Computed example of a mutant assay.
Amino acid sequence: MMDRSNWISAFLMLWLIICVGSSPFSVVVHMSSKVGLPAVLPCSVASHLEFDQTPHIQWHTLSYSVFERMGPEQFQGEAYRDRADVPEELLVRGNCSLFLQDVRFSDAGIYDSYLVYGESNIKNRIFIQSVHLAVIDHKAIKSVEIGADLILDLYTYQAEQVIFQNSNETDWTVLWEKDGVINKKGHLKKRDNKLILSRVTASSAGTYKILDSEGLALSTVKVKVTEPVLTKETETLQKQSALGKATMSMPSLNLIALFLTFNLMLQMN
């Protein structure tokens, strides 16, 4: 049997767990982003700000310091150089959301945000919330007509290589490498952030994977190659052309009549 003091301690601990777990500043926010795209990790400190106060915000992962801002002054972690920001114009209104550009697989994980306060020599932090970011790859199925162009989105400058597996084979072939000379098909062209395969043939059907420097698939595209679909105008022209050829190959009615008359005259004689 627990004595009165133990019951009180247990009750207080349970109450603390319930209160902390129900606080909006302790809930882990789960979100996902596709690799190469931007992501916004939500955060708000409006209820904690005093009048004319300049917020001082920090974002951290378990292993890295991601971003820190106080007014115009900012700090970016090395792994997030030129990719992370908490816009100052939003922060002064209490929006401390972290903006990430060109999301990488290595960005996946839990991010903690803090409000920093206190004098210059004595700083304290208030934990705001945690955001769990999942980073996923791109997947697509495309259907392309023979003779048309296949466009593959690279999505990000992280793209280092494109490999291809024909529908009837098990081996993978390197078709393209960033800043390299590999171009197996001879008609691969990089334009902006896209890769263009010109004049698709039946052998172009299969699976295309875009890989990063670690060999991870940024994108997987399954391509089906189909016969060109004729428009009604094209079908009409083809039928007219075929009919014209058939007509030209047939003897004229006048010639047939002349032939029959000639045969009849020969029989009468």
Rank of each mutant, 00 (worst) to 15 (best):
E160A: 13
S213I: 12
K194T: 10
K189F: 03
L197I: 14
L175C: 01
I151C: 13
L133W: 01
L216F: 09
Q158K: 04
D149I: 10
A134W: 02
L197C: 12
E160I: 06
F164K: 01
D112A: 15
S198M: 12
I196Q: 15
R199H: 15
K123T: 04
Q165S: 11
H187F: 07
K190C: 07
V131D: 03
L218G: 00
T173K: 15
L133T: 03
D179L: 01
S143Y: 05
G206Y: 04
D112H: 12
I182L: 04
I126M: 13
T170L: 08
T201H: 10
L197S: 13
T201E: 15
K178R: 06
T173P: 05
S113E: 02
G180W: 02
K190A: 13
G206L: 02
E169S: 13
A205H: 05
S143A: 11
D112L: 12
I151W: 11
E119C: 07
I146D: 03
V144I: 13
S113P: 00
D171Q: 13
E145K: 07
Q158Y: 03
A217R: 05
Q129P: 00
L211I: 04
K190S: 10
I163H: 01
Y117K: 01
R199F: 15
A134Q: 01
L195W: 08
G215D: 09
V200G: 11
E177K: 11
S204H: 11
L195E: 08
V181T: 15
I210T: 11
D153T: 05
V116C: 00
V135Q: 07
A140R: 12
S213A: 13
L218H: 00
K190D: 03
V116Q: 01
I151H: 10
S203W: 08
I163K: 10
I136H: 14
V162E: 04
